[in-house]
Design a protein around this nucleic acid. Structure first.
Length: 987
RNA sequence: GCUCAAGUGGCGGAAUUGGUAGACGCGCUGGAUUCAAAAUCCAGUUCCUCGGAGUGUGGGUUCGAUUCCCACCUUGAGUACCA
């Protein structure tokens, strides 16, 4: 019987589906374990070999946990709203729902064929109204909440309204807009409804406000900070500009500190936590108030170094700072205005790219130092950002390099307030070594003591207090797109109103065009049935809008991260129509025990979802405030591109008038790889230039040649399927693939082959290095694919794919098969296992278990290979050995394991068979092959009984002839003996 | 610039508390089988001058360092004037 993997795999995939083998129960005697993969977006291109890496790892772990007796939740679904489907719709007119549906079908087929143990009964799709109903519902909860800093959690907005009515807002310690004005209870009651609603928006956790947003004209939408990479859009690489727009925002800044602290409680990779810490960007310091001389105005600055206050020699405001126009003296007016204008002209990218140029202008105004009362000049400079802190800094040139550079550039004095610091060349910014000098009451103190003292003094003066700042900005939540969740919002007198939760979902309307309207409104502006009837509580035709009972609906949709910010909770109770998940389900599953996905979501999905979870926790809607205990980032599988080289010439001639002419062009020649590095011109052109008559040569030959032509090689990506494991190119295949190479000449290696150069790059269609799992499954089987993906290297690492290597793991599976069956049938019998058999098995159990718990899947594959090699050599046929071996292997290669398990006579799936118990007694050795080292270098080994003590070992080793040979008569200075480990002779 | 990873044969990688560097697999070489090929099996495969050298480089700690410490180099990722 041969190992017919295609047949076996189809058989068991069908069996698992039919028997719902991997269905998780919401109540069980067993302990729970929740294994989750990051939500995939079903793209049109389908899966390539890199995508399933994380899924295979999580699947192995999920299957392992089932063997360990856990009730495992291992769901899968689709983050099915998103830009690509919409871009496709714009181009083709196809409804995104249709293309999404098709893409999901492809994904599902591909996932099924790899043999994942997903519980598909819990599948969710973010674009499904029964799902986004609850995304809308959570949005409403956010709208109806504010953040109370006193209780340090989100609370219901009705509480806030009550307090406004009883005491005004002056005593309320809330996270809210900076521009909030104080009012009394009486004033509140006197405000009209619109005014009241405007004020409440400044407190709500999701709010509508005019904000400066990242507008991407090419995509016709705003983007969040994390959707912009190097100043251009993450998707498509389009330019992004700043623009003021009225948008929904999420007050994630309220959770900055808790998001930061929460990182300490979860087992996520250190680099990912570090990325989130940087993104949150906490800095501890103080607010200091400076009075402007001869004026009522005050400038508040934020500084992390209040201890350096006696080193201030100027102030710098952002050019956009609101006080600039008011404090500038008439004499400086022209200069300041010029400077502001010049800064405004510079694009965001310019300012980002150009860090070196120092620029600024003096306002003519002076502030008064809070302690010395000395005058300090006020400058403006574009190195100060309007959006961070207060948009103003107290400049301490001796302690901050940017201030230092600015001072040098404008000849501003640089007082030194650090004991023993040399500031002749650069600022002294090392706060750990700081001892303050020339600073009145701070003299002799270190950074910590001085900071504490100065804040206390400032508070006495009423000119400052300790303050913590965060870089984390509120997240823009509106997108001017069609294919996203509609907001459950309509507008009355321009103020947003929530639709009552019982009328959800508000379904996405049909539109004729997916582009913005002619008046520049988002695509939903094209919908003709998109108004809210407050009496019938349904979506009605726009014609009926009367702004009395029928109102216009919100035209924006939610961003991609809305649906993915809470989906892990939905899997716990995926079909609940009354709640986003029942209390019972939430309390049973609680959180994700293992979350696997890419690190590219570090500041997007993984931060927003933590924020939503904390909010839901505050509202008592979920039982834990961090939803994923452990998170692993799988590395990316890179493609191994194949490159052939096209010959290119650059000629330089002088014509009859003495003018230099340069001519260059490609030859119809592809060059095999070994010629690229050692290129011998004469070898190529023995008769140059006679054999280059095919282009320009007649005309050129009459000219004076200045130098030999420069030959270069232009790399061409070749489809990797045209190249074999030895990098040999199928030339005929290439000619069939691309007709332009039909008449090319090929410069071959001496052995007559054409070899391509290999380069490791990201897998992408345009590089023709994409390997499709479908082909691999067909040719080698899913079990081989699964094993090979794991065998490639550590899960977290980036590593190149090379299809050639798969024959190794495939050969292993065949060898495994032959251990159980041959052409006559089953080989396994009831033979008593030998000592060696048991040793191999238990060694394998131990290592396999350790590896799987350390997520070291690559080494466990090696372990299985060693076990099968050993058992084959031992001619093992014992069921007592071969049966447990199948269980060890089944998480990795489930199909072959099920098939052999069945052949051994089992009628139930192997998937819940108990994991074999490790018995250390089988590994006890009676002797040890000691490595004998001289000065730390191993020279030979020696077999000695395990129970020898150090002295016996030393005697035996010293008596050995090779020892004497090594020592050549010298007496060893020292002999190090670690019984059971090593012997090292020094001398 | 700052932060975080990572540098080991021709290639992917292993060495879990400092103790035989290169497990396992690919590739390559030779052999068996075959009319031949595929498949399969067996043997070898870090490097060189066969005595050594050797885990990015240079130091250090140690009887002993891929592993610990210091400095540096390279590559990748994140971040970008954050006061």
């Amino acid at each position: 019987m041969n190992y017919n993997f295609n047949e076996i795999e189809a058989k068991w995939q069908k069996y698992w589906a039919k028997n719902q083998t991997f269905r998780a129960e919401n109540n069980s005697e067993k302990p729970k374990y929740y294994v989750l993969d990051m939500f995939p977006y079903p793209s049109g291109a389908g899966l390539h070999v890199g995508h399933p890496l994380g899924y295979i790892a999580s699947d192995i772990y999920a299957r392992y946990k089932r063997h360990q007796g856990f009730n495992v939740l291992h769901p899968q679904g689709y983050d099915s709203f998103g830009l690509p489907a919409e871009q496709y719709a714009i181009q083709t007119g196809q409804h995104p729902a249709l293309t999404t549906e098709e893409n999901i079908k492809t994904y599902r087929r591909q996932l099924d064929q790899i043999g994942f143990s997903f519980d598909w009964s819990r599948e969710v799709r973010t674009s499904d109204p029964s799902y986004y109903k609850w995304t809308q519902w959570i949005f409403i909860q956010l709208f109806n909440s504010w953040y109370n800093k006193d209780s340090d959690k989100a609370e219901d907005i009705s509480e806030l309204i009550k307090r406004f009515a009883s005491e005004g807002n002056s005593k309320i310690n809330a996270v809210c807009d900076d521009t909030i004005q104080t009012f009394s209870a009486e004033e509140w009651k006197a405000f009209d409804t619109i005014k009241q609603q405007q004020i409440l928006l400044q407190y709500r956790l999701t709010y509508l406000a005019e904000t400066e947003v990242n507008w991407c004209p090419a995509l016709g939408t705003v983007l969040a900070n994390d959707e912009i990479v190097n100043g251009v859009s993450e998707r498509g690489g389009h330019p992004v500009i700043r623009k003021k727009m009225t948008q929904w925002s999420m007050r994630i800044s309220a959770y900055a500190e808790r998001l930061l602290q929460g990182l300490e409680t979860i087992d996520w990779t250190e680099s990912l936590k570090e990325t989130q810490r940087n993104w949150i960007g906490k800095s501890v310091g103080a607010h200091v108030e400076f009075r402007i001389q001869n004026s009522e105005f005050r400038i508040t600055v934020f500084t992390t170094r209040p201890d350096t206050i006696f080193g201030v020699s100027f102030m710098t405001l952002a050019p956009e700072h609101e006080l600039v126009s008011q404090i500038t003296t008439p004499a400086q007016k022209a200069e300041v205005e010029n400077y502001i204008e010049a800064t405004a002209k510079r694009s965001e990218r310019d300012r980002m790219a150009d860090v070196k140029t120092i620029s600024g202008a003096f306002t003519g105004a002076y502030v008064e130092h809070p302690f010395t009362k000395e005058p300090i000049p006020v400058w403006i400079g574009d190195y100060v950002l309007a959006g961070y802190g207060t948009g103003a800094v107290m400049s301490v040139p001796c302690g901050d390099q940017r201030d230092y550079d600015f001072a040098k550039h404008f000849n501003i004095p640089i007082p030194n307030i650090f004991q023993g610091a040399d500031i002749s060349k650069e600022a002294f910014a090392d706060k750990d070594k700081t001892i303050i000098a020339n600073s009145d009451f701070l003299n002799g103190l270190n950074y910590k003591e001085a900071t504490k003292k100065v804040i206390a003094e400032l508070e006495k003066l009423g000119q400052g207090q300790g303050k913590t700042n965060y870089r984390l900005r509120d997240a823009v939540f509106s997108r001017q797109r069609y294919w996203g969740e509609p907001f459950p919002v309509y507008y009355v007198d321009g103020m947003p109103q929530m639709i009552d939760a019982k009328h959800l979902p508000i379904k996405l309307p049909e539109v004729e065009k997916y582009l913005p309207t002619e008046t520049g409104e988002p695509p939903l502006g094209n919908a003709t049935v998109w108004a809210w009837d407050t009496t019938k509580n349904e979506v009605v035709s726009n014609d009926l809008i009367d702004n009395k009972t029928i109102h216009p609906l919100e035209l924006n949709t939610m961003p991609g991260w809305a649906g993915s910010s809470w989906y892990f909770n939905r899997y716990m109770d995926a079909h609940n129509e009354n709640e986003f998940a029942s209390k019972e389900a939430l309390n049973y599953w609680k959180d994700v025990d293992l979350y696997i996905g890419g690190s590219e979501h570090a500041t997007g999905h993984l931060l927003y979802s933590r924020f939503w979870q904390k909010f839901l926790f505050d509202k008592g809607l979920v039982p834990v405030d961090e939803y994923a205990k452990k998170l692993i980032n799988q590395g990316m599988i890179l493609g191994t591109s194949a490159l052939a080289y096209n010959l290119r010439f650059d000629f330089k001639f002088r014509d009859s008038t003495g003018e230099i002419i340069e001519i260059s062009g490609f030859e119809n020649i592809l060059v095999s790889k070994s010629y690229i590095e050692n290129f011998d011109f004469d070898f190529w052109h023995p008769n140059y230039p006679d054999n280059y008559r095919n282009w320009h040569v007649e005309e050129i030959m009459s000219y004076e040649q200045i130098r030999k032509p420069i030959v270069s090689f232009h790399p061409i990506h070749i489809d990797v399927s045209l190249v074999n494991a030895s990098d040999e190119l199928d030339i005929q295949g290439l000619k069939n693939w691309r007709s332009e190479y039909k008449d090319f000449k090929f410069k071959l290696e001496e052995d007559g082959t054409f070899k391509v150069k290999r380069e490791v790059e990201k897998m992408s269609k345009s590089k023709y290095n994409v390997v499709n799992p479908d082909q691999i499954c067909e040719q080698y089987g899913a079990d081989s694919l699964r094993l090979y993906e794991m065998f490639l290297g550590p899960l977290e690492q980036y590593k190149p794919w090379n299809t050639a290597g798969i024959t190794g793991v495939h050969g292993f599976l065949k060898k495994l098969w032959r251990l159980y069956v041959d052409e006559n049938g089953l080989l396994v019998n009831d033979a008593e296992p030998t000592k060696d058999n048991l040793k191999t098995l238990h060694k394998t159990i131990k290592k396999a278990q350790e590896d799987i718990e350390n997520f070291s899947f690559n080494t466990s594959v090696s372990t299985f290979m060693i076990a099968v090699n050993e058992l084959t050599a031992q001619k093992c046929t014992s069921k007592d050995i071969l049966e447990p071996l199948l269980i060890l292997l089944s998480p990795y290669a489930p199909h072959i394991a099920e098939e052999l398990w069945e052949k051994l006579g089992h009628t139930e799936s192997i998937s819940t068979a108990p994991f074999p118990k490790f018995d250390a007694s089988h590994l006890v050795e009676s002797s040890k092959n000691y490595p004998i080292s001289f000065n730390g270098k191993m020279k030979f080994t020696m077999e000695l009984p395990m129970d020898f003590n150090a002295q016996q070992i030393e005697e035996a080793v010293m008596a050995h002839e090779k020892t004497q040979e090594q020592l050549q008569g010298r007496t060893p200075k020292k002999v190090i003996i670690v019984p059971g480990k090593i012997v090292n002779i020094v001398g």
